[in-house]
Simulated scan of single mutants.
Amino acid sequence: MQTVLYARVSVADQIVAHQRTQAEAAGFKIDHVITDEGVSGISTVLADRPQGRRLFDMLRRGDVLVVRWVDRLGRNYLDVTETIREFMRRGVIVKTVINAMTFDGSTTDPIQMAVRDALIAFMAATAQAQAEVTKAAQAAGIAHAKGREDTYLGRKPSYTRAQFDEVVNRLDSGEAIQAVSKATGITRQTVYRIRDNRSEAEAALARWAA
């Protein structure tokens, strides 16, 4: 039996390392790390990602697939739920770092099955809703910047896309503001702004095409 961490990140290698650190801090002993970098989780299904395909080839019955959260496994509600269920049909146990969820297809207790399936549906729906908000904010920001180049775009963000993603990851993991600031090189005030209005912070990146 092997434990495989699957990480999908936008750009920076340090985010991959951070996801492994998070998983190990949560008690997982990771045997392999499979990473898709620069691949959109909004537009690309897991089976179409270069390393996502490897998961279906390498995972066997009894293996454990670890992900930071279920949004790593698909682009929308249907994709996430079908991916998790396909792994369960193959006897693979899916576990999340955030909220310590376990999705195991071997259970036969009807109550446990109902709770498991309800959790899959809820978490997948939440992941899709968050992805749609992010996509809408990016599209609106880009359209605004391209269509009205003479319009004041606001102050240019003092953080990059990679830094924004890392801040979000660390905040979602429960890290303190000061620790996030130190790890990312961003001021505490900026970390507070990202935490308190994440959609606007991401829209600012989109407006500046950052």
Rank of each mutant, 00 (worst) to 15 (best):
residue 3 T to N: 13
residue 39 V to D: 15
residue 85 R to Y: 00
residue 198 R to P: 01
residue 147 G to E: 02
residue 123 M to P: 00
residue 63 D to F: 06
residue 16 V to Q: 06
residue 194 I to K: 07
residue 110 P to W: 15
residue 116 R to G: 01
residue 101 M to G: 03
residue 95 K to Y: 06
residue 157 P to F: 10
residue 65 L to H: 06
residue 100 A to W: 11
residue 33 V to R: 02
residue 131 A to T: 11
residue 173 S to W: 07
residue 134 T to Q: 12
residue 4 V to M: 01
residue 119 L to G: 09
residue 44 T to F: 03
residue 36 D to M: 04
residue 130 Q to S: 14
residue 54 R to M: 12
residue 25 A to M: 08
residue 187 T to L: 03
residue 135 K to C: 06
residue 150 D to K: 08
residue 170 R to M: 13
residue 168 V to T: 14
residue 23 A to F: 11
residue 194 I to T: 08
residue 54 R to F: 07
residue 11 V to P: 00
residue 20 R to I: 10
residue 153 L to F: 10
residue 24 E to M: 09
residue 10 S to P: 02
residue 81 T to N: 01
residue 116 R to F: 01
residue 88 M to S: 07
residue 57 D to P: 00
residue 180 V to C: 02
residue 65 L to N: 10
residue 55 L to G: 04
residue 101 M to N: 11
residue 17 A to T: 14
residue 157 P to H: 08
residue 179 A to Y: 12
residue 139 A to S: 12
residue 120 I to F: 04
residue 162 A to S: 14
residue 134 T to I: 10
residue 162 A to Y: 08
residue 24 E to I: 06
residue 123 M to W: 10
residue 133 V to F: 08
residue 205 L to G: 10
residue 117 D to H: 04
residue 197 N to G: 01
residue 167 V to K: 03
residue 190 T to E: 06
residue 23 A to M: 10
residue 175 E to P: 02
residue 126 T to A: 12
residue 117 D to P: 01
residue 141 G to N: 07
residue 41 G to P: 03
residue 122 F to V: 13
residue 46 L to K: 04
residue 97 V to W: 03
residue 67 V to G: 05
residue 201 A to Q: 10
residue 71 D to M: 07
residue 135 K to R: 14
residue 175 E to A: 13
residue 97 V to D: 07
residue 100 A to D: 15
residue 65 L to V: 04
residue 157 P to A: 08
residue 35 T to R: 12
residue 37 E to I: 12
residue 166 E to D: 06
residue 60 R to F: 02
residue 64 V to D: 12
residue 97 V to A: 02
residue 184 T to Q: 12
residue 32 H to W: 14
residue 37 E to R: 13
residue 39 V to E: 15
residue 137 A to F: 02
residue 87 F to M: 04
residue 61 R to M: 11
residue 149 E to I: 09
residue 153 L to R: 15
residue 11 V to M: 00
residue 83 T to A: 09
residue 208 W to N: 05
residue 35 T to H: 10
residue 58 M to D: 11
residue 121 A to E: 13
residue 107 T to N: 07
residue 155 R to E: 15
residue 100 A to N: 15
residue 89 R to G: 00
residue 7 A to M: 04
residue 182 K to A: 14
residue 34 I to S: 12
residue 24 E to L: 05
residue 60 R to K: 07
residue 184 T to E: 13
residue 60 R to A: 10
residue 200 E to S: 11
residue 122 F to E: 15
residue 34 I to P: 02
residue 139 A to L: 08
residue 132 E to M: 15
residue 61 R to S: 15
residue 101 M to K: 12
residue 109 D to A: 09
residue 11 V to K: 00
residue 82 E to M: 00
residue 45 V to I: 04
residue 94 V to T: 07
residue 175 E to R: 11
residue 173 S to D: 12
residue 192 Y to V: 09
residue 208 W to M: 02
residue 89 R to W: 01
residue 191 V to S: 06
residue 201 A to V: 08
residue 178 Q to M: 00
residue 48 D to R: 05
residue 81 T to G: 00
residue 123 M to D: 13
residue 76 N to A: 08
residue 67 V to N: 13
residue 144 H to N: 08
residue 197 N to H: 03
residue 194 I to H: 04
